[in-house]
Computed example of a mutant assay.
Amino acid sequence: MANEDIYTFSEAFPMKGGDGIHSYTLNSNLQGNGVIAAKKLITESIAEKLDIKIFSSLNICRIADLGCSVGPNTFFAVQNIVDAVKFKYKNLGLDSQIPEFHAFFNDHVANDFNTLFTSLPPNREYHAAGVPGSFYSKLFPNSLLHIVNCSFSCHWLSKVPKEVIDKSSSAWNKGRIHYANAPDAVVKAFEAQYQKDMDSFLCLRAQEIVHGGLLVIFSPSRPSGTSHSQSAYNMLVDALSPCLMDLVKKGVVDEKKVDSFNIPVFHFSPEELTQAVDRTGYFSIEEIKELPLTANGTLSLEQLSLHIRAIVELSVKANFGEEILDELFDLYLKKLQELSFNFNSENSINVFAILKRK
């Protein structure tokens, strides 16, 4: 398979579906704890920033969760928003005027929507619908949505930058699958892809969200001024590179496949997000906060290994084959133990931002 084919093929793999031992459903406590920790911020932000007049014409609140995966975290996120809107109405003495809720769950077309919808909360307070497709494309009609949530999703790029798998490029990322400890040219290629993607993301959401509507971004991040190589999130992903190269040395994996495989994520800083909002000009930043990773709870190294496997297994399987998975992630756990990896590092944060459509 040509490099370009691998590049195109690997860019849109969702999280591991189902409910098995390696599934995202069972190995997304890190994200789930973060969503739960953000509940108070969601409630406060909607109470202060949301103008309920935007619901007045049809008395319906349309919510979208972008990058929903398979649950249960997406259900927590949507329910947090529903509860916050209801709380606002009750505080205003408008209990009888609480709108109906329509929730749209979005992810790539290959997402396990069957598992998602079979696990919908039976007593949910909203009508549910699935919307397949990349959030780097237009997903909804103009001015349809009132509140859009994107939790632990928009650090995923639309694709791997072409330069990093091009042998003739100065940004060729040979022997690595991430940019954390890569040469400057590789880092710049990822930064440029992030800027392009985030600008596109914000411009598309500006079309879909009503004026006065809210966009909630909750994402793994790094503090402004912190180097990419010092970010705990980046270190966690980057630790896969030497494990794959160990399999190359054993003759289990073709080195050319490692050279053509990169994980398309970019852990932006709050400053970089602010710059994107300012560049595009469609939203105002109502609030932006840095949350410590301790808000996500503490995970053991074994749990972190399973967490990363649930995220990248399908992509690794497509590029290297299913037969390497167990050996690769056994090596990965040993690598984390060897590094005495401390995920709750001060060099990584979650960024929480409330943006309002102008």
Rank of each mutant, 00 (worst) to 15 (best):
K162W: 04
G281W: 01
N142H: 09
D199M: 02
R176Q: 12
E290N: 09
G93A: 00
F341D: 00
S137E: 13
E163C: 13
L41G: 07
S56K: 11
G34N: 00
I349W: 01
G67S: 07
I288S: 13
V210N: 09
I60V: 13
H108T: 12
D197Y: 04
K289D: 03
M245C: 03
Q230N: 13
F352C: 05
M198W: 00
S158E: 03
F105Y: 08
D83E: 11
A128C: 04
E327W: 05
F190L: 12
L301P: 06
P99R: 00
N149S: 09
I354R: 04
P14L: 00
E290V: 10
K53H: 03
A110E: 10
V210L: 09
H228M: 10
C61R: 06
V316D: 08
E286C: 15
L299W: 06
E100S: 11
N27L: 03
F87H: 14
C154E: 01
P72C: 05
S158I: 02
A232R: 11
T280W: 05
H22T: 09
K167C: 05
L92K: 08
V186C: 09
W156C: 11
D184Q: 15
F9L: 12
E302V: 15
F283E: 08
V265R: 06
H307R: 13
E11C: 15
N59L: 07
N142E: 14
V216F: 07
G281I: 02
M245G: 00
H155P: 08
L215F: 06
Y179D: 04
S219Y: 09
Q230R: 14
L306N: 05
Y7M: 13
G20I: 09
S284M: 14
N347F: 02
S134V: 11
I21Y: 07
P183I: 05
G321N: 04
E323M: 02
N234C: 11
A206T: 00
Q303C: 07
A232M: 14
D19L: 13
D166L: 07
Q195R: 14
D246F: 08
C150G: 06
L331Q: 07
I308W: 04
L240M: 12
C154K: 03
V351W: 10
I209A: 02
S305W: 08
G212P: 03
S200V: 06
L139P: 08
E208V: 06
A110L: 15
H178W: 12
L306E: 07
A182C: 10
S300W: 00
A276V: 01
S269R: 02
A353F: 02
S151H: 04
E338F: 02
K257H: 09
T226F: 02
I177V: 15
I209K: 02
L41A: 13
L328P: 08
D184W: 06
E208H: 06
S56C: 09
I288P: 03
I6C: 05
E272Y: 03
S119W: 08
N344P: 00
C154M: 04
A206P: 01
K159N: 07
L50C: 06
N319I: 14
F343D: 04
I21A: 05
F87C: 13
L202N: 05
Y136C: 05
A12R: 12
D95N: 05
A318D: 13
S241N: 07
F218S: 01
L299E: 11
A12T: 10
H155M: 13
Q207V: 11
F13W: 12
L202H: 08
L92T: 03
I324N: 10
